[in-house]
Amino acid sequence: MGLAKVVVGKTFTTCGTPDYFAPEMIASTGHNHAVDWWTLGILAYELMAGHPPFESAHPMQIYQKVNKGINKVNFPKKVKGPVEDLVKNLCKKEPSERLAMRKGGATNIRKHSWFNLFEWEKYDNGNMPSPYKPQVSNKKDMANFAARKEDMPPSIPYKDDGSGWDADFATCS
C-alpha cells in the first residue's frame, strides 16, 4: 500500500500484492480507483479473519479464486453479519457496483451498518481517543515489539574476500 499513481480514466499498470488484486487487474482490462474499494474489502476481511479471503501460496490459485467471486468465499463466524455485508459490497466483481462507486460515493461506507457505532465526527475532528495506548517507559523501550524466531531473516555470515571492493563505502566507525 505504499504505491500510488495519478490516473485519469483507466490504467493498465499491474503492481501490488496478489491477495488484493481486483478481477479487472487480473484480466488486464484496465482499472480505475474502484480497485481501491476492492482492496478495502479484502483488508477488512483479513483484519477480521486473520487471513485474506482468496488465500493461497500460489498467485495463480489466488487469481482463480478471485475470478470465482467473493460469494464463493466461506466467511468464518467472526466475519458474519454487517462486516460480511460490507466486504461483499466492496468486493463486487463489477467495479461500478462496489459500494463506494454507487451513487453516494464514499458516504455509502460511512452509512453502512458496520459503522453504526463509529463516531465519524470525532474522527473527522481528530478528537477520537485511541482504543489502545501501549505503555512505553522511554524513547528506547522496545517491550511492545517481540519478533518471533520464525519471522527473523536468516543470518548469513559475511566472509571478506580481501579484494577491498568496499574500501570507499561510508562506515559507522
Rank of each mutant, 00 (worst) to 15 (best):
P76H: 04
K159Y: 10
F12N: 12
S56C: 06
E119F: 01
S113P: 06
A147Y: 08
T13G: 05
A22L: 02
M48A: 11
P52K: 00
K103Y: 07
G162W: 03
M60H: 11
A22P: 04
K149G: 02
D151A: 09
F169W: 11
N108C: 05
T29V: 12
A143I: 00
G9W: 04
S163I: 02
S113C: 08
W114S: 02
H112R: 06
M101Q: 14
A34L: 02
H58R: 15
H51K: 13
C91S: 06
P157Y: 00
K80S: 15
S56Y: 08
S130W: 05
K103F: 03
Y132H: 09
N125D: 14
Q64R: 13
K93T: 15
H112W: 06
L117K: 15
W120T: 13
K122E: 15
K122M: 15
S130M: 09
W165I: 04
P53D: 08
T14M: 10
A27M: 12
A106N: 04
T13W: 02
M128E: 11
E84K: 10
F12Y: 14
K133Q: 13
C15A: 14
L47I: 11
V136W: 12
K111G: 01
G41F: 03
V35S: 03
G164S: 07
F75W: 10
V66I: 15
L86N: 04
E97Y: 06
L90G: 05
D160E: 13
K149P: 10
V136Y: 11
A44G: 07
R110Q: 12
H112M: 07
K92C: 09
Q61I: 09
M25Y: 00
T171I: 10
W165K: 13
K68S: 10
C172D: 13
P153R: 05
P76W: 04
P18R: 01
V87D: 03
E94D: 14
V83L: 13
K92R: 14
C172H: 07
A57G: 14
G104R: 14
D124V: 01
K133Y: 00
K149H: 06
A147E: 11
P153N: 01
S173L: 11
C172S: 08
E150S: 14
P52D: 00
S130H: 12
N108R: 01
T39P: 01
